[in-house]
C-alpha cells in the first residue's frame, strides 16, 4: 500500500533574538491510508509544531527550513499559500484543543458548516445545509440545534462540532492536537470512541497529538515518540507498549500510573529537556539517560531501522533488537 504521508528529515525552526529554536529537527516518519499515528511528547518536544507544519501553518518567526512533506506522493513542503488553501480543510484538516477559540462566537453552527463546505465545493446553499445536518447527526448532535451559537453547547458538544467541521469535506488526513485535553475523562472516552468510528467510516488517516501516552494507546496504530524536537522511536503501537527500545520510551512508560496494576512502582526521568537553541552535541537525551556512554555525548545517534517498521534513535541498537 502506498503511503498517505511521508515526512523526510523535516526541520522547522523559530528564529528568535537568542537564536534559532530547533523545534522540529530532522524528523522522519510515514503513515498509510486509514492509519492512526500517535504523536507523543512532553510540552516543548515539538509535537504541535510538527502537526502545524504538515498543514504549513507554522507562523512567523517559525519557518520550515528543510525536508520533505510527501502527501499522496506530492512534496507539499514547497507549495505556495494559494495551493495550500485548496488542500487545507478539504484533503488535510485539523481539530484543536479548545474548539471555542476556533469557532466564531457570532455564527450559528450550521453557518459554520455551510461556509466550510461552500468554500471548497460549488454547491447550492440548500444542498450544503442538508449536508450540514447529516454531519451534525453523524457526530451525535441533534440537527435541530444547528441554529444555536457555540456558547450554547457544552465542552464535549463543541468538540463534536469541531470534528464535524474537520470531516465536512471528507479529508484524507485529520490532525488532532490535544483535542480531548480540556474534556473530562468520561466525555473524553465518548469523543475518542466517536473518532474511532468516524475514522473507519471515512477511511481517514489520523495524526493524534497528545502528551498522554495512555490515551494515545487507545487509538493509535503507530507511535511516534518525540523528545527535544526529534522522533526518538517510531514503532507499531503494540510493539511500542510491550517492547519499548529507546531509554526515553522506557522511562516514560515507567512513569505513567496504570490503573490496572496494583502496587505499581513508578519511576521518573531525572533532569530536564535541553534548551533547543543550544541543544547538546550528541544525543539530546544523553544528559538524562541511565545508559549513556561516551559516544552518546559526542555524536548524534542516527535513526536506525530495527525491523521493517520499527525505528529507534539510539546507539544501543545496531539494526537489531538486541543491544550492542
Amino acid at each position: 500500500m502506498k503511503n498517505l504521508l511521508t515526512i523526510q528529515d523535516l526541520r522547522v525552526y523559530y528564529y528568535l533574538r537568542e537564536g534559532a529554536v530547533r523545534a522540529v529537527d530532522g524528523v522522519s516518519f510515514f503513515m498509510k491510508r486509514g492509519e492512526t499515528v500517535g504523536l507523543v511528547g512532553e510540552s516543548g518536544s515539538g509535537k504541535s509544531t510538527l502537526g502545524l507544519s504538515i498543514l504549513k501553518l507554522v507562523s512567523s518567526p517559525g519557518k520550515i527550513v528543510s525536508g520533505k512533506i510527501l502527501f499522496n506522493g506530492n512534496d507539499i513542503a514547497g507549495w505556495n499559500e494559494k495551493k495550500m488553501r485548496l488542500l487545507r480543510g478539504s484533503r488535510i484538516s485539523m481539530v484543536f484543543q479548545d474548539p471555542m477559540t476556533s469557532l466564531n462566537p457570532l455564527m450559528r453552527i450550521e453557518e459554520h458548516l455551510v461556509e466550510t463546505i461552500r468554500t471548497h465545493q460549488k454547491i447550492p446553499k440548500a444542498e450544503a445545509k442538508k449536508k450540514a445536518s447529516l454531519l451534525l447527526n453523524e457526530v451525535g448532535i441533534p440537527p435541530e440545534r444547528g441554529g444555536d451559537y457555540p456558547h450554547q453547547f457544552s465542552g464535549g458538544m463543541r468538540q463534536r462540532i469541531g470534528i464535524a467541521l474537520a470531516i465536512a469535506l471528507n479529508p484524507d488526513l485529520l490532525i488532532a492536537d490535544e483535542f480531548t485535553s480540556s474534556l473530562d475523562v468520561i466525555v473524553q472516552f465518548q469523543i475518542l470512541n466517536l473518532m474511532k468510528k468516524l475514522k473507519a467510516s471515512h477511511q481517514m488517516g489520523l495524526i493524534f497529538i497528545s502528551h498522554d501516552i495512555s490515551l494515545v494507546s487507545e487509538i493509535a496504530d503507530r507511535i511516534a515518540l518525540m523528545y527535544a524536537g526529534q522522533i526518538v522511536e517510531f514503532a507499531p503501537a503494540d510493539i511500542f507498549f510491550s517492547e519499548p527500545l529507546h531509554p526515553y520510551s522506557e522511562g516514560l512508560l515507567n512513569s505513567v500510573p496504570n490503573i490496572e496494576l496494583s502496587d505499581q512502582k513508578l519511576n521518573y526521568i531525572p533532569g530536564m529537556p535541553p534548551d533547543l537553541v543550544r541543544p547538546p552535541d550528541g544525543c539530546r537525551f544523553y544528559p538524562r539517560c541511565p545508559y549513556g556512554e561516551d559516544i552518546c555525548r559526542r555524536k548524534e545517534p542516527p535513526l536506525v531501522q530495527i525491523e521493517k517498521e520499527h525505528m529507534v534513535k539510539c546507539f544501543r541498537y545496531d539494526g537489531k533488537k538486541s543491544r550492542t
Binding site: 475523562v185 493509535a220 503501537a237 496504570n258 490503573i259
Partner: peptide, 10 residues
C-alpha cells in the same frame, strides 16, 4: 473507572 485510558493497546 472504565473511561480511564490504560497504556496497553492489547
Amino acid at each position: 473507572l472504565s473511561a480511564i485510558p490504560v497504556p496497553d493497546p492489547k
